[in-house]
Computed example of a mutant assay.
Amino acid sequence: MTDIPIPEIVAELRSARRDWRLAQGRSLEPRGRDLPSREVLRALLADLHGLLFPMRLGPPELRQDAEDFYVGSALDQVLHTLAGQVRLELRHTARHAHLSPRETDARGDHIVRQFAWSLPATRRLLDTDVLAAYHGDPAAHSVDEVLLCYPGVHAIINHRLAHTLHGLGATLLARLIAELSHGATGIDIHPGASIGGSFFIDHGTGVVIGETAVIGERVRIYQAVTLGAKRFPLDAAGQLKKGLPRHPLIEDDVVIYAGATVLGRVTVGQGATIGGNVWVTHDVPPGAHLTQASAQGGAAEPASVFPSPSPSLIHGVSP
């Protein structure tokens, strides 16, 4: 491999980095890394799981009479590490927002303090999710099995933590946590999505929940479900408009079966059931049952009511 021109490749890579930084209006002055670290956040998540559920997700040698000591020690380390990562994000953002280092550090301290105080409520909310998974799956033999084994439970733990950070303004950290969770579980939940208690994702692989989705209480969804956007409006300059409400509203006690797709700012009413592989782009009334016409064996509503990529195969069916 001695014939590979390493110095020339290094020089070309340096030139590519320089061109990118100039195009983005960034400084060429040498400095250290100024963005949060995926590796640090991965370890941070493991510690957060442990201090939230010490006897199940904490150290294997932990005894119950030492729980408080472990939780206190882990929490101190987590908050110290989190503070460093929050400051990195805020200082990076401050270059564009023209905030002083003193202002960014004060804001970072506030975020970490609020996050710390949110953890007891997060634990209580997660308890409802664990119970929902246990009661919602006949294959589950115990809540311990659910907590140790189910990817949907680990995804919602990560989401609850990321959602808190997102709401406090640490949006990049929240997105990094969401993507680490996505890689580990196959479940893609944007940290901006609002999800009520007793939420259960069964199996989970391929689930996508968009940024502005709002999910109520006691909702259950299965693998390959998408709660996505239908269209992406542009501004006067032809750029995508950011942050607009564009994902579904899922009311309480809804069940969405495998492969279903719900797109746009539509409402799925309380107690409705969306069958497998159904494509929904219009509001669904409370208590409705939507299935594929071929599986229902009855008359289907017109395809224009619940459009799909293949109207001849997938239709909305009233109860």
Rank of each mutant, 00 (worst) to 15 (best):
I6H: 10
I6C: 02
A11E: 15
S15M: 13
S15D: 14
A16I: 15
W20H: 06
L22W: 00
R26V: 07
S27H: 02
R31E: 14
R33P: 11
R38W: 13
E39Y: 01
A43C: 06
L52G: 07
L52N: 05
P54Q: 07
G58T: 08
Q64M: 08
L79K: 10
L79G: 10
T81K: 03
T81N: 01
G84M: 08
L90V: 11
R95C: 06
A97Q: 14
A97H: 13
T104C: 05
D105Q: 05
D105V: 11
H110A: 12
S118D: 09
S118F: 08
A121E: 12
R124W: 02
D127C: 01
T128P: 01
A140Y: 09
H141W: 01
D144G: 12
D144N: 14
C149V: 13
P151V: 07
G152M: 07
A155R: 05
I157H: 01
H159I: 09
H166S: 13
L168E: 06
L173M: 09
E179W: 05
E179L: 08
S181E: 08
H182K: 03
A184R: 12
G192D: 12
A193V: 04
S194R: 15
G197W: 02
G197S: 12
S198P: 00
I201T: 05
G206W: 06
A213D: 03
A213W: 06
E217A: 08
R220L: 11
A229K: 04
A229T: 07
R231M: 11
P233D: 09
D235M: 02
L240Q: 11
K242P: 00
G243Y: 05
G243F: 08
Y257L: 14
A258Y: 04
A260C: 10
V262D: 01
L263T: 13
G269I: 13
A272Q: 02
A272R: 03
T273E: 07
G275H: 02
G275N: 05
G276W: 04
H282C: 09
H282M: 01
G287P: 03
S294E: 10
Q296M: 01
G297N: 03
A299G: 02
A300K: 04
F306L: 05
P319M: 06
